[in-house]
Design a protein around this nucleic acid. Structure first.
Lengths: 148, 148
DNA sequence: ATAGTGGGTTGCCAAAACAAACTCACTCGC
DNA sequence: GCGAGTGAGTTTGTTTTGGCAACCCACTAT
C-alpha cells in the first residue's frame, strides 16, 4: 500500500478552459489572421508559417468549438472561407493584450502592427473595471474565490 | 475579389513575439499560479498538473526571458521561490482577458475563479482606448499598418 | 534509524509537429 | 485539347516535444 499522497487535482479555472480551446500552437495566429481579414487556407498558411496539416487540424477544431465558421464560396470545386464567429470575435481583448505585451516587452523597435481607434489615435488597449469604469493598476485586484 | 496581399514569409508581429515567450504549453498556467501567489515548485506542479521536467524547463525559460525570477530562500539545500518580474506582472491583461473569455464561452456555470476590484465589485475586465478613454466595441478598430 | 519533503534529473515511450511531396478538381492561356 | 497553375487539402517519413515513473541528493522531523 502506497502512502504517497499524489498531487491534488489541478486547479480548475477559466484560464485553463480557454487555453484548452485556443492554447494550442498556431491557434492564436490563425485567429490573428482572421481579425486581419484573411479568410483563405493558403493565405493563412503563408502568413502564419504553420504546416498545412497542422493548420487543417486547427481549423477543424476551432470550427468544432465554435470559434470560427467555414463558409463555402465555391461549390465545384468546394472551397471555403474561414470567419470568426461572435465568440471568436470576443477574443479581441486577448489578441490586443498579447500584442501590447509583445510590443512592450519582446519586440525591438516600433510595433510592426498597429490598429487605429475611431478617435484617430493609434490604439493602445487599457483594462478598466467594468463595474466602476476605473482603469486597473497595480494591486487593485484580490482573489475573492478560488478552489482551496 | 480579395485585396489581401499574399505573403512570402510569415507575418512578423508582436502577437507572434509574445507567443514565442509565453505560448508554450503550461507557461500561462505557471503565470496564473504566480499571480495567485503560489511560489514553490511542488505547489505549481500540483496546481497546474504539469509534468515536473516540463515545468523545470518552462521555469528556466521564463526566467531567462525575464518573465519571472528565481529567489533562493534556502542555501543548503538550495531552494527557490518563483516570482513575477515587472514584465511578468504586466501580463495581467492577458490573463484577465483569457479568464473572461473562458468564463463567457467555455466554462459551464459560474466562474470558478473570481477577482475583486477595489471598488468592491467582482472584477470584469473591459478594454478601453488609452488615448480617448472610450470603451472599445464592435468595429471601432482598423488596421493602420501591417507588414513591412 | 526511518520516513518525508523540496526540487529537481534521467530514461523511456507516445504523441505531435515538421517539411516535402502528392492528390484531386478544377481554370486559364494557347 | 494540352499543359501549367491554383486552392485546399492529405500522405509520408522524420524530428521534436510532452508525459510518466523512477531515481537522486540534501536536508528535517520523529
Amino acid at each position: 500500500m502506497s502512502t504517497v499522497t499524489r498531487a491534488a487535482s489541478p486547479r480548475r479555472c477559466s484560464i485553463a478552459s480557454a487555453l484548452d480551446v485556443i492554447g494550442e500552437k498556431w491557434s492564436l495566429l490563425v485567429i490573428r489572421e482572421l481579425f486581419l481579414g484573411v479568410r483563405r487556407f493558403n493565405d493563412i498558411v503563408a502568413n502564419t508559417g504553420a504546416p498545412r496539416d497542422v493548420l487543417t487540424a486547427r481549423l477543424r477544431r476551432l470550427e468544432d468549438l465554435g470559434v470560427l465558421t467555414r463558409q463555402e464560396y465555391s461549390q465545384r470545386p468546394p472551397r471555403y472561407e474561414y470567419r470568426l464567429t461572435d465568440a471568436g470575435k470576443e477574443l479581441r481583448p486577448v489578441i490586443m493584450a498579447l500584442k501590447q505585451w509583445g510590443d512592450d516587452h519582446v519586440t525591438d523597435g516600433p510595433p510592426p502592427l498597429v490598429w487605429e481607434h475611431t478617435c484617430g489615435a493609434e490604439f493602445v488597449p487599457r483594462t478598466h473595471c467594468a463595474a466602476c469604469g476605473d482603469p486597473v493598476e497595480g494591486r487593485q485586484l484580490t482573489v475573492r474565490s478560488a478552489r482551496a
